[in-house]
Design a protein around this nucleic acid. Structure first.
Length: 272
DNA sequence: CGGGTTACCTGACGGC
DNA sequence: TGCCGTCAGGTAACCC
């Protein structure tokens, strides 16, 4: 489901609920596996753990406690919801009980991840080891970095910016939107993208991610913030899911194609 | 190693 | 109404 803006929105929502000092009374697994088997020691290890803070890394949410860091990835369809009285639904897989409320993780497709690491070992946590830079922290994700990185291969530009080793957080929707804003077709190979176009692309990735965060993320079918609210950015899509519609800029008909098993959308006139 | 495809899983939707 | 094929915001295991 969620790309960086949605995960950021969920994290901020959870932050409102999980104040520092809140104590985990109990963690219950309603099944043992999501995408992978969840570490069976989590319930005992985190019983009585005290919340310290929440952070996002790539599309993962880190819940820091005094007993370690709980790591949550929402896959395609994962959601966390907050309940005063836990009433379970189909596809609820995890319940974290606090004194006055419970957090429930629901995930129909079970592509999500729920694991943990010690705080001082987060850097070497297996799923974090090869992640690229954060696009919004303004330090490592810049033109020289991306240009250098792009010289080593020759894949379509869309595949490149969706590669979490290159830059984190950009998924199918925001890759497609950023390429539209930059006038670059998703199929163009890296060797045919100029350094100037690459600089445009960086600016537009940052721009579209920030705009989406401001709108509370995008709601396609089932994305919800922790409070249950929907996001609004889907109304701002220029090309994503707009096959056969007219381009808002030039009026040409938006086209759709498949790349690496994912749908791409582009304006054949605005994007070269 | 790079590059491409497929699997993982459920549910929603469109066509017949 | 129901069945069947297709598709979905991600990641990682496989191929060649």
């Amino acid at each position: 489901m969620p790309e960086l803006p949605e995960v950021e929105t969920v994290k901020e929502g959870l932050k409102e609920i999980l104040s520092p000092g809140e104590v985990i009374c109990e963690i219950r697994f309603l099944r043992k596996d999501l995408r992978d088997e969840m570490p069976r020691e989590i319930p005992s290890l985190f019983k009585g753990a005290m919340i310290q803070r929440l952070e996002r890394r790539a599309k993962y949410i880190n819940i820091y406690t005094d007993k370690g860091v709980l790591i949550s990835h929402l896959g395609m369809t994962g959601t966390w919801r907050v309940l005063e009285e836990p009433e379970l639904r189909k596809n609820d897989h995890i319940v974290i009980r606090f004194r006055d409320f419970s957090l429930v993780y629901n995930d129909p497709r079970r592509f999500g991840i729920f694991e943990y690491a010690n705080e001082n070992e987060l850097g070497s946590y297996k799923r974090y080891k090869s992640l690229g830079p954060e696009p919004l922290d303004g330090k490592e994700f810049h033109l020289d970095y991306l240009w250098e990185k792009s010289r080593k291969r020759d894949v379509p530009i869309k595949n490149f910016i969706m590669d979490q080793k290159v830059v984190v957080g950009v998924g199918n929707i925001y890759a497609v939107e950023a390429l539209f804003l930059s006038g670059i077709r998703p199929t163009r190979r890296l060797s045919k993208v100029s350094k100037f176009e690459m600089s445009l692309l960086i600016k537009n990735i940052i721009k579209v991610l920030k705009a989406a965060i401001k709108s509370g993320g995008s709601t396609i079918s089932d994305f919800k913030q922790a409070g249950g609210e929907s996001g609004y950015f889907q109304h701002h899509f220029k090309v994503y899911d707009r096959e056969k519609e007219e381009c808002q800029v030039c009026g040409a008909v938006i086209k759709k194609l498949t790349q690496a098993g994912r749908s791409s959308f582009y304006c054949p006139s605005c994007q070269k």
